[in-house]
Structures are given as structure tokens and as C-alpha cells.
Amino acid sequence: MDRLLRERARALRRGMTKAERCLWQQLRAHRFMGLKFKRQKPLGRYIVDFVCLERRLIIELDGGQHAEQFVYDERRDCWLRTQGFDVLRFWNHEVLLQTDAVLEGLRLWVEEKRPSPPTPLPQAGEGS
């Protein structure tokens, strides 16, 4: 099963959709906020479109077929959330026609989830 899943992921990387290629150009090589993304990555029994393991973020791009497979997608997203991931979904046409807006949505998500810097400890003599 693992071997078949890896082979399927490899095939999906070779045959990315136009929307996936468009977003990948923005995410690859730490181009987006210095974060490392992987594409068509097996997680459990699923293959996710894009994942940033550091931020536990999965990005899924949906074409028209996802309107009919809502129940499957919901079950899949639920399992991924139980593994500690957040799943953001965008329609293919959003990525192709509103790339900047999609990237801004991702940026806002990252900023919201970024841990706050630790409060500095008081210097000697302060706060007593």
C-alpha cells in the first residue's frame, strides 16, 4: 500500500493541474514567507496537494469534481485535523484568477497561527 501511494503521489507531481503549477511556483523553494512546502505528499492513506509540516498546514485545490465528493472531502479533512493539521481549500479558478488574494489569505492564516514571541524576563532589579 505504501509503495502504491508513493507511486501515485509521484504520478500526481508529474501531472499537476494548471492551478497546482501556478500555486507551486509561489510556494516552492521557501518563496512564501520562508516556509517549506511539499507537493502531492502522502499522509496516512491520503495524498495532500500541498503541506507545510512546520506549520501543520495543508492546502487543497479543488476543481469541479469536488462539488460531488463533498462527503469524501469532509471525512478526509476530519482525519487530517485529528492528525493536527489545518486544511485550507481553494477552488482552482481562485488560484488562477485571484492568485494574489489566495496568497494573502494564506499569509493571514500564517500570521494568525504564528506563536507569539516569549515575553522577556525582567532584568535584575526590575519588577521587585
Score class of each variant (00 low, 15 high):
Pro120Thr: 04
Val48Asp: 00
Asp73Ser: 06
Val110Lys: 05
Ser116Asp: 12
Leu121Arg: 09
Phe70Leu: 04
Leu4Phe: 05
Leu96Met: 14
Lys38Ile: 03
Ala101Leu: 10
Leu4Lys: 07
Gln65Trp: 12
Phe32Pro: 03
Leu108Glu: 14
Glu104Val: 00
Glu7Tyr: 00
Met33Val: 01
Pro118His: 01
Ser128Met: 12
Lys38Gln: 06
Lys38Asn: 07
Leu35Trp: 05
Ala67Ile: 12
Arg13Gly: 11
Gly64Thr: 14
Leu97Ile: 11
Pro42Ser: 12
Leu35Lys: 07
Leu4Met: 08
Thr17Gly: 11
Arg76Trp: 02
Leu27Phe: 01
Asp49Phe: 02
Cys22Tyr: 08
Lys113Met: 07
Val110Trp: 02
Thr119Asn: 10
Ala9His: 04
Phe37Pro: 01
Gln123Arg: 10
Gln123Gly: 03
Val102Pro: 14
Gly127Ala: 13
Pro122Leu: 02
Arg3Leu: 15
Leu108His: 10
Leu43Pro: 00
Asp77Glu: 06
Leu121Trp: 07
Glu60Thr: 05
Ala11Leu: 05
Leu96His: 11
Thr17Leu: 11
Gly34Thr: 01
Gln98Ser: 14
Gly44Phe: 13
Lys36Ile: 00
Met33Ser: 05
Ile58Phe: 06
Gly105Phe: 01
Gly125Ser: 02
Arg31Pro: 00
Leu97Gly: 13
His93Thr: 13
Met33Trp: 04
